[in-house]
Design a protein around this nucleic acid. Sequence first.
DNA 1: TAGATTGTTAATCGATTAACAATC
DNA 2: TAGATTGTTAATCGATTAACAATC
Lengths: 218, 218
Amino acid sequence: MRIVAKEEGKVSDAVVRRLPRYYRYVRELMRNGVTRVSSAELSKRMGLTASQIRQDFNCFGGFGQQGYGYNVEELYEQLTRILGLDEQYNTIIIGAGNIGQAIANYTDFEKDGFILQALFDINPRLIGLAIRGIEIRDIDELGAFVQQHPIDIAIIATPRAKAQEVADMVVRYGIKAIWNFAPVDIVVPSDVVIENVHLSDSLYTLSYKIKELRSDPD
Amino acid sequence: MRIVAKEEGKVSDAVVRRLPRYYRYVRELMRNGVTRVSSAELSKRMGLTASQIRQDFNCFGGFGQQGYGYNVEELYEQLTRILGLDEQYNTIIIGAGNIGQAIANYTDFEKDGFILQALFDINPRLIGLAIRGIEIRDIDELGAFVQQHPIDIAIIATPRAKAQEVADMVVRYGIKAIWNFAPVDIVVPSDVVIENVHLSDSLYTLSYKIKELRSDPD
DNA sequence: TAGATTGTTAATCGATTAACAATC
DNA sequence: TAGATTGTTAATCGATTAACAATC
């Protein structure tokens, strides 16, 4: 009998980066009522090699079946579990400007189990307002709030200059995960995980691609 | 005498993804009045090897000096040029909801030369409104607008279900670059470049990291 | 059973790191 | 000049692809 999950945790970053994409595609298959899929078929849709898909899945144990392929529902459940999307996460947003408000309003994340509990800002004009019924609080209340409400993820949407300071603060209050939207690399202790959304980096990459395209239209 | 720029265009994706980060760090050095930097020093700040930094820069020609290092201003100018940030780009946003409005309000991109010319939406309640003085237009006017105003980049901020349709439209109107915020992989011809900001993928990656951290706190 | 497709090992490819001659 | 640091070649490492036995 085969053990369902191999020793996870030493999976390379390259593989981890592909997992959300697998999740999206398999979820789409679910929505379309597809019940089984082979690595060959998935490879055609996703533009990867079938070999790579099988290698990737096998980092987490074999959940396919020889001669059949993968059961879509089973695969979806496994990917959900692997990504930790079978749990709920309490979040707060720090910085209730443009970006902060946009994320607060983006309800799709709630469907995936990321529950926004509060926003925080330094600006008196924003404090006391609410987005989707969720109050914007004074940053000074952060410590007290976190003590009373266990928070899994702090979403940093402050200006660049304040981001590291805010990060230090949330780390001090015991929050172990940061989703950072400020255009700067934040430094955190090794027992805190961070994921960056560097919008400007993405835009610069696009302008690089444009330049490349224009100089060499292949 | 050495040629300043090697044959660019065959640079690996791994290198290209690091370029915006180099740009940010070197800009920061400029701001702080630093005039020279060695690959060893930069490597310490950025958490890369000095070897990798030299290899990366040398994809675009040697702009360092033996025994001295790199002149910060020169390096900054080179990176600006390499990324295509010495030019201006006209942009439009399609989808003037949360995300679209947030991007429209984020003025930092204008400083880098990305000029927002218009927003487009399908919702009659939004059409006619303006953000930073830039009008939200009916999506039906897109074709006529693009004909009169040359647009370099279309920023797609529509719901998932409309993204591919909108992409097909902008491609038909001759726009060659797409910055996509919809949580879906858009298909475009090979003479169009695309860069995705998959926020949900980033969030799922974070939840993966949280799970990993909790199961194996190293 | 025969056909299909996985899981897994081996081969290849590309990216990163190390080393050092060139040279400022 | 001597010391420092690049540019570049060679060595290593890791990720991707190919191949195929296992097996449903």
